[in-house]
Simulated scan of single mutants.
Amino acid sequence: MEEITETWEYDGSFYGFLCLVDQAFSRKAFPVLILTPETASESLFMGEWTTTNEARAQKIYRRLQQRLTAENLQFIQTGFYATLANKERSLLDAIEIALGTKDSLENYIGHPAVLAVRKAIKTLLGEVHLFTGFVRFEYVGNILFSKIAPKHYSLPFLCPHFAERYPNEQMMIYDETHRLLAMIDHGAVTLIEDSDCPNIKETVEEQEIQSQWRAFLSAVTINERTNSKVQMGHLPLRFRGNMVEFD
């Protein structure tokens, strides 16, 4: 595919990206830069706006399902939610490679675009893994509630872990970084974008549970053996703001 010195812009959604994919392959050209409303404010360039069309996006997604292996399609989808500068441009290169092979994109890490996406995915999933141990829930009525502040768009990948682990519970997890609310109802996950944090109020029972938890941690702590440097290696400071034991 030819690379052209153009800048394109879209709304930042996955459907919007699929419309960009359709536009790029229809024109047989990839732009040098792709902007979203967030990155456009930091750029000196004006982009050609690509309108998101849900029907068009679904059509392209079905075509990708037909022509890409399930593994490579998952690589593209996960890569879209990873944090990477001008990731859309790298993903277009990855899609072009995937369309021409049945091999895993993992075998093409010699290509700069594929390698960049792979590293971004590894960082994203690494954060997800950490949050499986660092999320702290509290009871708000009959609902388990937690608030997190991830660097990456981790919440959609984190929810299946808790949905499977607690299939009989109702839970809410709020991502204050991306203003994303996840509602998990007996294993079924619903995501609400651009959401404010729910106004919650702890019950007396929950306050007592938290008090007992802090008392337990205080009792098992040996102050003379405290090693802050080692502790930060196992539990970085950025995770502690929403953990009850550090409240």
Rank of each mutant, 00 (worst) to 15 (best):
R62M: 10
Y81D: 08
E2D: 11
R89A: 04
I121F: 00
P156V: 05
P112G: 03
D196K: 12
E205R: 08
S195R: 11
C19E: 09
W8K: 02
Y61G: 00
R214H: 09
Q77L: 09
N227W: 03
L64Y: 09
L68S: 02
R165K: 15
F17V: 11
T5E: 15
F239H: 09
A94Q: 01
F25L: 12
L125Q: 14
G110Y: 09
G100I: 00
E202I: 06
A188M: 11
D196A: 14
E193I: 01
E3I: 15
A113V: 02
S43I: 07
H152A: 15
H111P: 00
C19A: 09
A188H: 15
T51L: 12
T36A: 05
G16L: 07
T101Y: 05
M232N: 15
P31M: 10
R63K: 13
V189I: 15
W49G: 00
S26N: 11
P150W: 06
T36L: 09
L155H: 03
T51I: 14
I97W: 00
R214N: 14
E38L: 11
P236E: 08
D185V: 07
S43E: 07
T69C: 06
A149G: 01
C197D: 11
H111R: 11
K28D: 10
A29I: 03
D93N: 09
V117G: 06
H161G: 10
E96A: 13
L125T: 04
Q23F: 10
L158F: 05
E71C: 03
R63V: 08
H178F: 12
K119Q: 15
E106L: 12
N199C: 09
I95S: 04
I4Q: 09
A85G: 02
R89Y: 03
R179A: 12
L68K: 01
T83C: 09
L91A: 05
T39D: 01
R240N: 01
A57Q: 05
C159R: 03
I173A: 07
L18Y: 04
L64D: 08
K59D: 08
F216R: 04
N53R: 12
G126N: 12
H161K: 07
G47V: 03
T177Y: 03
S146V: 07
